[in-house]
Structures are given as C-alpha cells and as structure tokens.
Design a binder for these strands. Structure first.
Lengths: 219, 219
DNA sequence: ATTCAATTTAAAACAACCTTAAAAGCAACC
DNA sequence: GGTTGCTTTTAAGGTTGTTTTAAATTGAAT
C-alpha cells in the first residue's frame, strides 16, 4: 500500500512514517498544501492522509479540489483537538474518514487498512497470468526469486495484464519521491526482469511502448 | 497459547499473569483501551481478555471495532459485579465468554482452555517436515533440545513449510510487545537454529528472503 | 542521419543480514 | 542466600546481496 501524507509538523510526520513503514506501508510525505495538492491529483496512491492546518493551502481545500477534479482516492482528514466543525466540513466534502489529533498511529493504520479494504495482515496471494504464477508471500515467479524492487514492478505489470504502466507510475509505486536518475532505475529493473522471464522460458514478455511505459503480453 | 490481557488494575493483572504463566499461557498485558485495541487488531493471539472499564477506550468498544474489522480472535469480557447490561452488550457484540469480577484465575484458565479448544493439559504434538520431527511437548527437534525462543520461531517455520514468515510476525508471536534491537533478536536465533539444524545433518535449512523473512526449505 | 529513448553492464555504495562473544537475567540447587 | 548453569539480550564487526550510479551500446523515430 502506498499513501500520501500531507503534514507540516516534521517530528510527528517522521514518527508516523517510521511506524507505517513497519507495516509495509510506503509513504510519500510533503509538508505544505500546494505540494500536497499536486501529488494528490496524481492517481498514485491507495489513500491520502491530510492534516487540516497546513501552510499555503488547507487540507480542506485540497480535498475540495481533489473531489472537483473527480479524484476518488480515499482521504483521511486529521485535525487538532476535535474541531467538530472541521470534521463536519471534511466529511461533507467527501473525506472517507476522520481522525482527531493526537492519534495513535496504530489507529491510523487500522483505518487505512479498513479503507483499502485489506484484511489487517497476511494473505497468501498468488497472481496468475498465462503460464506465470507470481507468489507474493515468497516473492517468487514460477519458483525463481525476485528482489524487492523486481517484485514491486512485476506486481504492477501482472495486475494490469495487457494494459501499459508508465515509468512514472512505477517510480511512484516502488520508489516514492526520489531524485536524479529515476527513469533509469526502472529501465535497469525491467532488464533484470526480462532476463528472469527468459530463464523461465515463459511465453510472456515485457513489451516496451516508447514514450509511455511497459506492459506484460503473451506471444 | 498466547493471549492479550487488557486490564487497568495493575495488582490484579500481575497476580493473574503470574498464575497464567504457570499454566504455560503467555500473556501480553496492557493497561489502557487504546493500546489494547492496537494489539487486538493483530492476529497474534489465541484469545483476548478484555476488562470493560478501561481508560481511553472501553472493552466493549475494543470488541466492537475488532469484530467490525473481521478479527475473529476469541474474546472473554471481564466486568465488575455482574453488570448484567454489560454482559448482554458484550455477548451481542461478539464476545465468546463472560466473567464477572472478582473471579478465580482458575476459572479464567478453564474458560481460556475451553475457548481455544485444547484439552486442559498434555497434547503430544509432533510436527514433521521432511526428515525433521519437532516434538512440541518436550521441545526437541530430532532429539536435540530447543530453548523457548528457538522453539517459538521453529514452530512458525515448520507450520508453514514453503511459505515465508516475516520478522515482524516472528517478533509478534514469540516476543510480543518489545522495544529496541528487536530485529536482531530474530537474526540471532535464526543463527542458533541453523547451527542446530546443521548439527543434525538435516537436509532441511532455513532460507533468508531478503527484506521479507525466512522459510524452511528442503535442499 | 541524427537525435532521443531504451537497454545493458559493471562497479560502487548501501543496507540487510549473520555471527560471535560478552553481559545480563533467571531459575534451580545446595 | 549465594553459586551455578543456562537462556536471553546487547552490541559490534564482518559478510553478502541489493540497489544505485554511470557510461557505453543499441534501437526507433523523424
């Protein structure tokens, strides 16, 4: 699960992020409303957590614009000390849940899981495509092991067989916010994945769509 | 058997825990409702014992949220002095049993055992995997003795042969609530277990899956 | 033909993991 | 009650596999 967390209190954010990571929840964190809005408008997240009091643009405004643009990503609002009015405003504007500060991170995790409708832990998932069987718990593809990043990318490809995934989506999902050389990361790992697919003698392969991205196809 | 016990009366809790330990029941104890909820939402327990009157979040609320989230761990409710209404509420909300305070710890033990459907004592359980025979009652693996922690970890591995167990799952199951250095505990004990497996000349071994966990495999 | 995107490789940097040993904790025994 | 022996925790250094970086090569499009 990947979420966007817009929060201006640095220390709080760091603490929360640390705990979310332990739950295998990847977090993109930004500290002001404008940046938050930019990221929230991209369809890269399973959920968005918005503080209300923020520099430049409040959480409520972000939410409002998101919904106006038709972005349906689930949103959890955070606000200090039970400001009831905010709560009402938030829920009316289309927030999916609400959490009063201070909150327990575990409570946030629980609500995130509920929102993303994923049972709290463990699910021995296996994804199939033609002659491929991708086991998420063991991170193996037809028996051969994949590394973290390989698995992250392959999961995206096999979940949308036939339709393309952009490099930006891959970067966002597997790496989060990063700096230089980003696109090459994906290229490198696509190369590794192709090598592994070939070693499996699978008839599936990763097809490049120039200037767009990649997709998994069956030849 | 591992249980979660949420109780704000410290001295009562200590007394009860002491007696449960004698029965080989491992107990995680927390004193307030919020912490209780956090832990109750994880699938780490064979049963949960909830006092009703608690700071921050009542036992009934914890139970309610647990069931909403689909957590099916058996729950025993505790409440002072036959508050009949609480009893009814509790059972309606999905509690599995109910005990009025003050109670005899032996009574609690009996109900826990009943709930976990395990005959009061003795069960000569033996888990097998390829050339390994792990005897839970005297904690021996092909004859060699394992310590508490070694056995706790090995049990998890041998119960899910072929699929990986994460360090977090191991920590939760074998240690419960803990603080610093946690991950290293697991690493140290995996190392000990490997040493013992080698001394047995078993063809089974513990495989590391980087960034994910461990699994038992046969070479 | 030239340019820009994508591929591939290999080395360096990094983080996860392993191992060991000593310290601390605990329980059994005299 | 202190000694003994065993388990668990703490800590640090070494090892290995993964990820990042970078640069050279290939391939597609105008």
């Amino acid at each position: 699960m990947r979420i966007l967390y817009v929060e201006d209190e640095k220390y709080l954010a760091e603490a929360v992020i640390h705990l979310l990571k332990k739950e295998k929840i990847a977090v993109d964190w930004v500290a002001d409303g404008e940046e938050g809005l930019d990221l929230a408008l991209k369809p890269n997240y399973d959920a968005v957590v918005l503080d209300i009091m923020l520099p430049k643009l409040s959480g409520l405004e972000i939410l409002k614009i998101m919904r106006e643009r038709g972005i349906k990503t689930p949103v959890i609002m955070l606000s200090a000390l039970n400001e009831v009015e905010d709560k009402i405003n938030g829920l009316e504007m289309g927030a999916d849940d609400y959490l009063a500060k201070p909150f327990k991170t575990a409570e946030l995790i629980a609500r995130l899981n509920a929102l993303v409708r994923r049972p709290p832990l463990m699910d021995a998932k296996v994804l199939n495509f033609e002659d491929l069987k991708f086991d998420l718990t063991n991170r193996t593809l037809n028996g051969v092991e994949l590394t973290d990043k390989e698995a992250g990318i392959f999961e995206m490809l096999i979940k949308t067989p036939g339709s393309a995934v952009t490099k930006e989506q891959i970067l966002a999902h597997v790496w989060g916010n990063e700096s230089e050389f980003e696109e090459n990361y994906v290229e490198v790992y696509i190369s590794y994945l192709r090598k592994k697919l070939k070693s499996l003698k699978s008839r599936a392969e990763i097809k490049t769509i120039r200037n767009l991205g990649y997709k998994l196809v069956y030849v």
